[in-house]
């Protein structure tokens, strides 16, 4: 009896190791490739690894006058403003959706999901034409507007989920003891909602940082966010340059992933009740 169990155990271990190698290759392979390219000074066929490794391209990118730094600045500025705007709008909206019996609530929820649940490109195209009329094309304001619409989906969704998870009884207890609504919100509800709102802010930040398609139409040709820069480089087969930017763009997203795994529960994102 014992022999059979150990055999099964060994078989399991071997299969799992093969699994780790294969799955690791499939999932991390492309990413590893990009990472390698960012450090490759010379890399051509048929080598599996670059012939020459160095930080030349990194140094160029991170130096003061480089286009990369400028684009990074633009991207971050835009992202921060988008986060502020999104939070200011979505916190009340999320609270209303969570607590109040609004008319057509179901329809509203679907409506707010649409920017992500429906093809975006035609909408961007028409936004461009509308923004032409108001001189918003090629401006930072226009790009912020686009990023805001896209991020609103996530920030409202997460805000609603967060507020729903705070028991009404906590607020009612405070009211019962004499606090008014505003006080209750700022002293009790908001602090409890803080983790969710922080998660949503990070999410919006990264969404804005990585946004390409909308920026491509509305921001061109003056606003060169980091993704736009990367796209141009990649299409021009500027491998190392593009890869450096790609790594730069991926780092915040991966950091967020670690934060999410460690400190916050994916419950906020899995509140898909629509």
């Amino acid at each position: 009896m014992q022999n059979i169990t150990t055999l099964k155990w060994w078989r399991g271990m071997v299969l799992r190791t093969i699994g780790i190698v294969l799955i690791g290759l499939i999932i991390c392979g492309p990413l590893a490739g990009t990472l390698l390219w960012s450090f490759a000074e010379k890399w051509y066929w048929p080598n599996v690894f670059p012939q020459e490794i160095g930080v030349k391209y990194w140094q160029n990118a991170l130096s003061g006058q480089s286009q990369v730094m400028e684009s990074l600045g633009i991207s971050i500025t835009i992202a921060v403003i988008v986060v502020l705007a999104a939070t200011l709008i979505s916190v009340p909206a999320g609270y209303a959706l969570a607590r109040y019996n609004l008319p057509w609530k179901r329809i509203l929820l679907v409506l707010f999901l649409m920017p992500q649940a429906f093809p975006q490109l035609p909408v961007f195209i028409n936004m461009t034409s509308i923004f032409y009329r108001y001189n918003l094309v090629g401006t930072v304001k226009g790009v912020i507007a686009v990023h805001l619409v896209i991020s609103l989906v996530y920030s409202i969704w997460i805000a609603t989920s967060t507020f729903k998870s705070i028991p009404v009884s906590l607020e009612e207890a405070a009211i019962n003891l004499g606090a008014n609504r505003l006080r209750v919100f700022f002293r009790i509800t908001l602090p409890l909602a803080a983790p969710g709102i922080i998660a949503s802010s990070i999410f919006v930040f990264i969404t804005s940082l990585d946004e390409f398609t909308g920026t491509f139409f509305i921001g061109a040709p003056f606003i060169q966010t980091l993704p736009i820069l990367m796209y141009t480089a990649s299409m021009g087969y500027n491998m190392q340059y593009a890869s450096v930017i790609a790594v730069l763009l991926t780092i915040p997203a991966l950091v967020f992933m670690f934060i999410l795994e460690r400190f916050l529960k994916v419950e906020y994102i899995s509140g898909l009740g629509v």
């Binding site: 690791g24 999932i27 492309p30 390409f212 990367m230 796209y231 990649s234 491998m239 790609a246 992933m257």
Partner: peptide, 20 residues
């Protein structure tokens, strides 16, 4: 590990696949 590509932006995914 299965969650990893979720956090990689579409643009980077495209570029990485191009290289790969």
């Amino acid at each position: 590990i299965y969650r990893l590509p979720l956090f990689i932006p579409f643009l980077i995914a495209g570029h990485s696949m191009r290289v790969f």
